[in-house]
């Protein structure tokens, strides 16, 4: 894992981004964080930011997390994605496995511990 690690947060709830940002800061998961409440805007500015990882909510108006992933696949973008959802549905978890970008499926609320285990998982993978 390099010194500069950039994460993009995509969640229509500003407060969710606020919490996750703080958790990232506490656990030192990344040095750089950009957050979006509008997934369509995040898609446009994705090239500009080139994040190492995207935290993606599923249940969003206008563009859902699934549509966001479809859009990535269409433009052959293989940026790693961690799904962060309040849905406990097993169906969603299974569906997520169809996308090569998805490296983890986390259920809200995120905790320090989940962040830390994600950190070690990413570190061992890199």
């Amino acid at each position: 894992m390099s010194d500069s690690f950039k994460i993009m947060l995509v969640d229509d709830q500003q407060m969710a981004n606020f919490i996750n940002k703080k958790l990232i800061e506490i656990t030192q998961l990344a040095t750089d964080v950009v957050d979006y409440t509008l997934p369509e805007k995040a898609l446009v500015e994705l090239e500009e930011h080139q994040p190492d990882i995207i935290f993606l909510d599923l249940n969003m108006p206008k563009i859902s997390g699934w549509e966001f992933l479809d859009s990535l696949t269409q433009s052959h973008n293989t940026t790693k994605v961690v799904i962060v959802t309040s849905s406990t549905s097993e169906l969603d978890k299974q569906k997520a496995q169809n996308y090569i970008q998805v490296v983890d499926f986390l259920i809200k609320p995120l905790t320090k511990n989940t962040m830390l285990s994600l950190k070690s998982k990413l570190r061992s993978a890199s």
Binding site: M15, I19, L23, N59, S86, K108, P109, L110
Partner: peptide, 19 residues
């Protein structure tokens, strides 16, 4: 699903409150 959203936020806020 709808109930979990705000509940998760509350739990999340409590999680970071220590800091």
């Amino acid at each position: 699903h709808n109930l979990r959203e705000p509940l998760c936020r509350i739990l999340g806020l409590l999680e970071i409150a220590d800091y």
